[in-house]
Amino acid sequence: MATAHVFIVNSQTFKVHLEYMFAGTGVRDEYIDFNSQSNSTLNHKTENNLVGMIADINRIRIGDHIIFYLQQSGQNKIFEGKFYGIFEVISSSFLDNYGGEQYLTSELGKSLTFRIQIKPYEVYQEGVTEWEALDEIKNITSPNQMLWSLIYRKLKGNRGNTMITSYEFERLRQLLRNKNNKNILDSSAFSFDIETQKIISSSLFREYKGRKEEINLFPRLIGKFNANRQFESHLQAYILQNAEYYLGKYIEWIGNEVSCGVGMQRIDILISKKKGINRECLPIELKSTEAYLGITNQIQRYVDWLHQYYLPNCPSDLSPILISRRIDMKESECFSSLINEFNFFNKFNNIKLKYIEFFVENDELKLEEYEY
């Protein structure tokens, strides 16, 4: 199983993505000065926004699926947003920093800093309209069958790269198959015809020749850690990039900033893993600070939402995780109260909250489970 990701495009960028077989996100003309560096001159809000985009691209793995969402544009007579696909990821995420050497900036009409390369998987000419995907309910028998990841993205105006659940991908894939009478476009090169609003075969194969700088947030994370500054977004991006190392093998689906309601609740990281013949769902709450009393209230929201909207479509054992900064004073009354809170949460939900502390040792970020 692979994670599917939806990239937001316009008619100009979509054509370039198809012809050069890549996907990406970016923001204005910001130069990333903190890659492989411990310091940054960027405003902290700007930096955190960029690190959020890095987290989004870091969740993507080779073999994952890509769907493009073409935005509505009255000027180009695209009167409804449409979903097109399907493509497969063939590279790890990489950085092509803003500046004179950034590849295809003029063709795109914008800066796309964080990128991955793709290849055809099942490419369909016709796109599925937003109404058909999100609003049509004639085959929906329960609210949990709706494409909530995309509905939440629409409501909240989330970033340009959104993961969808395995169930949502299969539903969207079937909509594409039905719309195209199950006819797959057989070609090795593609483009986009804005007049017909269809993906078309192209006789011209364009090789991607842009820069591919490795994304490395670790020096910046350590710099913030040593300065005792907040770095939750950096921690998320780094763990996502190294999820298999920190969270084990057999990961089959990864999500981050997973919306679980129309409010502001988001699961920092959500992972689905194979566990023998069973499946395990791991909602992860990240804190760059020490854990504090009341922290399970947020995790409870995640658990309740997962029971109602995720687990019915993907039956799994629920195993929530809290990852936070190591608490040295474990003999304190406050820590004892925290453990009591964990035990109450476990008893109430009939599950075990795994408590993991992180620390830095020998210039390495280490995670260690605390047994209680």
Results as ranks from 00 to 15, higher is better:
147 L>W: 01
175 L>H: 00
142 S>T: 13
110 K>N: 11
252 E>K: 10
67 I>F: 00
77 K>W: 06
319 S>E: 10
1 M>Y: 12
340 N>R: 01
49 N>D: 11
214 E>Y: 05
68 F>H: 00
341 E>H: 00
332 S>R: 02
44 H>S: 14
317 D>I: 15
347 K>A: 05
225 F>S: 03
31 Y>G: 10
85 G>H: 01
275 K>Q: 13
104 L>H: 04
94 F>L: 09
286 L>I: 03
101 E>P: 06
103 Y>Q: 07
52 G>M: 07
287 K>D: 01
277 I>Y: 12
60 I>A: 00
159 R>G: 14
223 G>S: 07
343 N>S: 11
242 N>D: 05
369 E>L: 10
76 N>I: 02
339 I>Q: 03
342 F>S: 02
168 E>M: 08
120 P>N: 00
72 Q>R: 15
239 I>F: 01
137 I>Y: 10
286 L>F: 04
347 K>Y: 04
263 G>S: 15
344 F>R: 04
81 G>S: 14
369 E>C: 09
294 G>D: 07
143 P>W: 06
169 F>G: 00
66 I>A: 03
89 V>S: 04
76 N>L: 10
55 A>L: 02
229 R>G: 06
24 G>R: 03
263 G>W: 11
161 N>Y: 06
363 D>W: 04
364 E>L: 12
61 R>D: 09
225 F>W: 11
123 V>F: 03
207 E>F: 06
36 S>C: 12
103 Y>P: 07
351 I>D: 03
167 Y>D: 06
101 E>I: 11
159 R>N: 11
286 L>W: 02
215 I>C: 04
253 W>Q: 07
200 I>N: 08
192 F>W: 02
184 I>A: 04
57 I>Q: 05
100 G>H: 12
108 L>F: 15
79 F>K: 11
334 C>D: 13
